[in-house]
Design a protein around this nucleic acid. Structure first.
Lengths: 185, 185
DNA sequence: TCAGTTGTGTTGTATAAACAACATATCCAA
DNA sequence: TTGGATATGTTGTTTATACAACACAACTGA
């Protein structure tokens, strides 16, 4: 028990920053977004940004994990089903997020963003696998999570290449049987 | 010169409060809105509300004047035209505001709200009249502003009685010639 | 009628956020 | 190449906000 209870000001400020960042991402591409842009929109001081985030990549990372968690059904996440709906919603979240991040090509940042996305996916998959297969060796679960994170990310790259001629849900649907085969271990 | 520059936190907090109040007004009627409702939605402490506003009526008052000023074309307001468009936009703002405030009848608060609305209208009309007729006696301008505020408010009551079967713009249009005759002094 | 609940308004103290000033890095055009 | 402009981080001090606790008013239903 005994949660420390975070100060509401902290929650509010982080929310303001994240929301502003998401909105800005829909307006222009990642590399053109400055800290000042974000803090102006959020109506907070630039120095306060650094009180909460190390840099803009830290923000990206946390915004992404936020988006992923929100899109996942919390109860399902807790219950560790890792079923079809989970894959679809994770993929959809990633696809949407990338869509909003990159309105145009942006060389030189893709790698960083890609890494961050994969890391977040990895964390989520690993947790879910741990609950689904509690007796499996950690090494195996980690490897599976790694492969899943790369696989899902790759699928989103592929989807983006076809320029969303298909809904993300529809796109990933066909791949799910193969994924599920893989994770039965 | 020399503006004191208000602390951004103050501006931000007031905005959060006002926005939350406006949103809540669209969900339920005025008498059912508590300070806690507002501050929860705004993610601020209840005590902070009292740092900025005396009570909920003070908030109502300032939210209203905010709404009115935003709906008025700033440049026009500065230039003191007091023309047809001004009347239409003021009436529309009042009508919309009342619409959002009172989703159902709420006895016992109507008088207070009505008074607040008229007071705000009075202030705006008086300022505009002063600029349009700088040489006129103050007493005359005040009386005119009073009559205009009551008149416009009365029109909004009448409009609401017909339950918005007509757009506010259309409704007030027909009355404008008579109003304008009155203010030529 | 009265007790329980809910809302209002206030106060002293702890803390997050604003600010200004600074150093450093990056970029770009002259 | 240089210098001006713009962006990133950092720090010490001031100030707005959170919090907890309180008194009190208004309502409710038993």
């Amino acid at each position: 028990m005994s949660e420390p209870k975070t100060d509401p000001r902290i929650l509010r400020t982080r929310k303001l920053i994240m929301d502003s960042f998401i909105e800005l991402s829909e307006e222009k591409e990642f590399k053109d977004i400055t800290i000042k842009d974000i803090t102006s929109k959020a109506m907070i001081n630039r120095a306060t940004f650094y009180y909460h985030f190390q840099d803009i990549y830290d923000l990206l990372e946390r915004a992404l994990s936020e988006v992923l968690l929100i899109n996942l059904d919390y109860s399902t996440y807790g219950e560790s089903e890792l079923n079809n709906e989970d894959f679809v919603s994770i993929f959809k979240a990633i696809a949407d997020f990338q869509q909003s991040l990159s309105h145009r090509c942006h060389r030189g940042y893709e790698d960083t963003i890609a890494r961050i996305i994969r890391e977040q996916l990895y964390v989520i998959f690993f947790k879910m696998l741990q609950k689904k297969h509690p007796n499996e060796k950690e090494k195996t679960l980690k490897l599976t999570a790694t492969m899943l994170s790369w696989g899902i990310y790759g699928a989103s790259v592929e989807w983006r290449k076809n320029n969303s001629s298909m809904a993300p849900e529809e796109f990933i649907e066909s791949a799910i049987p193969f994924i599920k085969q893989g994770i039965e271990l």
